[in-house]
Structures are given as C-alpha cells and as structure tokens.
Design a protein around this nucleic acid. Structure first.
Lengths: 194, 194
DNA sequence: TTGGCGTTTAACAAAAATGTTAAACATAAT
DNA sequence: ATTATGTTTAACATTTTTGTTAAACGCCAA
C-alpha cells in the first residue's frame, strides 16, 4: 500500500465492469472508460500500462467473482431444496447487478480461445451428483442433470441479458421490470423444483 | 440484376452473419470478414461503401429474419399446445444455427439506443393474450404471461449462447452437444406446458 | 473479339484507438 | 515547508482499422 491512498486503480476497474457487465457496452474504448470514471485516459496507462492488461484483469476478476459466488452456494451445508433456493436468490442478485458479465466472458472466450480450469469442473460435478440423487428420490423431475443445470441458469440469466428488448417489447419501465425480476425468484424455484 | 451474376454481395453478408451470429465474434473487423469470405477487403467497400452500412444491413436482415420466424409461428392457425410445440421446434433450429444473433442485436441496441417498432409489439400482445386464455383454461400454470414468455425464450436460447462454456464445463463434444440440444425441444415443452 | 463487370493489387489517405513522454499541478503526509 | 504521490495537460508516436483511388487482370456475354 502506498503512503497516500486513493483507490483510483480499483475505481477504474469498477467503472470498466459497470460499462461492460451492467451496461453491456462490449465495444467500449479506453477513452469511454476513462470518461465514465471521470479521469484522464493517461491514468489508465499509468496504472495498467495497456488496454489488454486492464481488460484481462477485469476478466480475471469477473471469473473470480463468479467462482466465489458459485462456490458459496455449491459448498453450502444445506438440503438440496434450500440450496437451490439460495442459489436462485444469490445468483439472481448477481445477474441483476451484472447482466452481461457472462456475456463478456463468452465473447472473450470466442475471441481468444481460452480454456476453463479443471477445478471448476469438479465442483460442478458434485453438484450434478446431488441433482441426480434428488431425481432418484423423486423430488425433482428426472432428466439429464446437465439439462437441469442449463434450465436453471437459463431461467435466471436470460431475461436480464435481453433486458433492453424486453422493456421495449412488453412496455415496462425500470421499476416494474425490477419487480418482475424479483418475482422470478419464486417462479423459477417452482419451475425447476417438482 | 447485372449482366454477369455472381452473388458475392450476399456471400459477404452471409459470411458476416456466420462470424457474428454463429461464431459470436462480436469484435470482428472488416478484414476478418473479408478473409473469412475469401475476398479482398476493398470489395466490401465496393459493395457496401462503409463498414457501418454493411453492419446495418446485416442487423436489419437479422431483425427481419427473426421477425419472419416469429410471425410464422405467431400467426399459425394451430391450437395453443401445437403452436408452442412448433415454436420450440422452429426457434430452437434458429438458435442452433445462430446462437448469438439476439446477442448481436442486444449489443447493437446498447451501443446505438435504437428503438423497437410498434408492429412487433402488437403481434406479441396477441400471443400474450393466448397465453392468458390458456392459463384460464387451466392448461398451463398461472403466472404473468410475460414471465411465461421469458421462461420459454430463456430455456431455448441461453444454453446455446453459453455453448462454449457448457461444452468445456460438462466435458461434451459437438455431437453430444447437438443431441442434448435436440433433446431439449421435448424437455422444454414439458417444462412450460406441464 | 471486345467491352463491361467482378475482382484483385498496390499504394495511400484518413480516422480511430492506443501508447509514450515530459512537464506542471495539487495536495496529503512527513 | 518540503516531498513524494496522484493526477492532469499537452504534444506526439504508433498501431489498427477503415476508406479511397487507379490500374490491371480474367472472363463471360453480347
């Protein structure tokens, strides 16, 4: 830590996240980000040296945050039913805040052909197993557990990605949209559980 | 029509669509597109004068194609149940071919602040009404019809957008993924039409 | 067979985005 | 009060992307 501590470096990254993940402006330039952060563009180079480094850090933090959230839920000592409920609650809050975060990761993957670390896969595997067991018990409809996962995440994430279309299409404002999204928590639970 | 008829102009647009909508490379440059189309970049300017015009044409055609598909389904003279079945069949085929098409439209909307024409909204409205009626009849679970729509489209579109993540996460190859997506047609129908 | 069209090549121009440098300024911490 | 740090300004350099122009080539159709 430096003697004089502004946290401008983090502020810049947070602004980039807002632009990319909340506003979905995937084509934003360094100038756009500097403007939005209310700082001079040279400051971005001062802190990050290059656009690529900034973007990479943002992407890395994004992946870390997503992992942290998923871990929190996956490893929770809860009954399956409660775990699902908690997952919906936590994950929906996330996508409401950062609707385009996964989209950013996807387009970065499409651009750069990166790969997903093994550890994440093992965490998911144990969750898939839990799902299977719950199906055996007859608590949820039987299907490929991967399909169950896809359903769950689709129902949570998609309506927020298409936010701008939906608002216009269904003629709804910010407040009502927020309410619809909050109502979805219960609705989604009812759809996937039984 | 010209005396000598290559259809290079359309070929270029189709290539752009493939790159944007199928491969999800939202940051592709005119050079990328020219290369993928196997033509010289100057030819893009020859046909379209500017990148913006090409992109606008591609976006316009995308919207038109999506509208055409939706119209085909919305206006079909079918019972609600069959209509839903057909919608899933037709729409899933679309998203399997162009997973990122809606994503492209969304990011363009976020970039340019365009607006959606009224006509589309009225078509949707009559569909929402059909949904309400079906709920009254007790054929499907009661909820806000808009939520029903969001559920339906989420279940269809999202797993294909996150294609690259899913393949890696669930350790599946192209063939198996294709099968999973085909199986989803039936699965989604069962989820929304209890 | 030749004229017109589609296409490429090459060489630039222009614009947009990014990166660099040095100097000046502000100010909180010592 | 001085200094080190954070920040801005301004002036450029570099790189990437896009747009322009003119000439040449291949070839099909009239």
């Amino acid at each position: 830590m430096s003697q004089r501590d502004t946290n401008t470096e983090q502020h810049i990254k947070d602004t980039a996240k807002r632009i990319f993940f909340s506003e979905g402006k995937l084509h934003a330039t360094t100038q756009d980000i500097a403007d939005a952060a209310g700082v001079n563009r040279t400051l971005l180079n001062y802190y990050f040296r290059s656009r690529d480094i900034l973007f990479e850090q943002v992407a890395t933090e994004a992946r870390a945050e997503m992992s942290a959230v998923m871990d929190f839920v996956f490893t929770a000592k809860l009954e399956f039913k409660d775990k699902i409920e908690q997952m919906i609650d936590v994950f929906m809050d996330q996508v409401m805040k950062f609707p385009y975060r996964e989209m950013y990761v996807v387009t970065e993957l499409n651009r750069t052909e990166k790969i997903i670390p093994e550890e994440k896969k093992t965490r998911l595997k144990s969750f898939l197993k839990e799902i299977s067991e719950e199906m055996e018990k007859g608590k949820i409809k039987k299907m490929d557990p991967r399909q169950f996962c896809m359903n769950l995440f689709a129902l949570m994430a998609y309506p927020l990605i298409t936010n701008c279309i939906n608002k216009s299409l269904y003629n709804i404002g910010d407040a009502e949209y927020l309410k619809l999204m909050k109502d979805r928590k219960q609705l989604i639970f009812e759809m996937v559980y039984q």
